[in-house]
Design a protein around this nucleic acid. Sequence first.
RNA 1: UGAGUCGGCUAGGUGGCUGCGGUGCUCCAUUUAUUGGAGGCUGAGGAAGGUCGGGGCUCCAUAGGGCAGAGUGCUGGCUAACGGCCAGUCAGGGUGACCUGCAGGACAGUGCCACAGAAAGGAAACCGCCGAUGGCUUUUAGCACAGGUAAGGGUGAAAGGGUGCGGCAAGAGCGCACCAGCAUCAAAGGUGACUUUGAUGGCUUGGUAAACCCCACUCGGAGCAAGGCAAAAUUUGAGGUGGGCUGCCCGCCUAAUACUUCAUGGUAUGCCGCUUAGAUGGAUAGCCACCCAAAGAAAAUCCACAUUUUCUUGGACAGAACCCCGCCUACAGGCCGACUCACUUU
RNA 2: UCGGGGGUGGUGUAAUUGGCAACACGGCAGGUUCUGGCCCUGUUAUUGAGGGUUCGAGUCCUUCCCCCCGAG
Length: 120
Amino acid sequence: MSYKLRSICDRRTFAALKATKFSARRGSVRSLFACSGEEIGPKIAFGVSKKVGNSVERNRIRRRIRAAIVSNLDQFAPGSYLIIPGKGALNASFEDLKLDVCESMRRSSMKALGLESTNG
RNA sequence: UGAGUCGGCUAGGUGGCUGCGGUGCUCCAUUUAUUGGAGGCUGAGGAAGGUCGGGGCUCCAUAGGGCAGAGUGCUGGCUAACGGCCAGUCAGGGUGACCUGCAGGACAGUGCCACAGAAAGGAAACCGCCGAUGGCUUUUAGCACAGGUAAGGGUGAAAGGGUGCGGCAAGAGCGCACCAGCAUCAAAGGUGACUUUGAUGGCUUGGUAAACCCCACUCGGAGCAAGGCAAAAUUUGAGGUGGGCUGCCCGCCUAAUACUUCAUGGUAUGCCGCUUAGAUGGAUAGCCACCCAAAGAAAAUCCACAUUUUCUUGGACAGAACCCCGCCUACAGGCCGACUCACUUU
RNA sequence: UCGGGGGUGGUGUAAUUGGCAACACGGCAGGUUCUGGCCCUGUUAUUGAGGGUUCGAGUCCUUCCCCCCGAG
């Protein structure tokens, strides 16, 4: 493993994620992407609403998604990701959840990178 | 055997692979005081929850006393403190084990008691009863006028003790007996709330204080986003470098522009507060296998119950956030102990 | 971490000091009409949930659930 997965702890990055247009959805998982060009690898944050469940269920969803991301970390482009799971993420099987998370993250980052390449 | 009551305990376990937080521990590397890696150690609950009560801790306020406001409210003890706990008293519920109770004061005062009912509080005559006494008439009687009357009817959640005998025109604690209840006094038991017994008294003025209130006791306010330390940018102030008066120094003037030092203040941000779990976008996990609980289906023994085998599903409530003591609320299943009632057998 | 307000038919609001849960717009059914509208009649509620005080709770007390607002 070349480097560790980091979480976002910067207010400015969250503001950028709030304003971003690069979002994608697959299954019950939605992900947002923002990129300032300074990131070495992917950084993540979670937005788990209280409507999803109580604190035990919310924690469980977050842990499973984190495990899914860690298991194939090399796929993702460097940048900041905000992952917003829905209610289905709790009872989905681990393979399905992994697919949903990775696909949605990959697609949101591809949108951004594709846009940058057409511009410049 | 069945149905219950009370108290206590537990809150799945083992292994493998891949990972995470903390670390005043050890080693290595890097920079010189930080970062990274490896190892060791360690890493959620009985309620961590709700944030209802109290305390520690921190800052602010504070001569002393009172008013106002808020809270508590049977007795004794425990506690740092509490609206908590333990034991008891009383009241209510249950056949019983046992359970429940914000359980002071309604002769200090004020308010309210809808509808119904005559009357809802120091009473009252609607129906009824009587009409002794007085009155009238057709005078051993009648009228029901004055008036007497709370026994009976009816209303209501509630109608100012109950039963019986006497008494009376009819009645009435009007008189008496017993019972209930109140007040005072005395004795006995108890630390006390209170209980028991006896005597005396007048025959005895509802309910509501989770209505205002009275009485007794308690209470300064805010909360870890408390609070403290360091400290960009910006602000303000004081200098230095600069330009001019002169060739130089001192001195004076200038500051439109630029650089820079110190102080000011304490924002962004970081750290401390902070913990034998100690995060700060929040770690304590993900996946797999087996075992023990549990549920469902099928087959066999089989009237059924029950037992065995196989397969499938698959773990109650719920996640620390400064720390304690309580309360309240949520909770599948299992285990242990004490006790009660009913039935059966001996 | 604190403080304040609220929950009433399907929707929006009332209900004085505890005393018959009211109004409007809807929905449904019926009537009127050749048909529809207007109109008329009826119906549509365990006052967020549980427990208590009281003769009697939308109202008073208490424990939960949900929503909204404010302060740092």
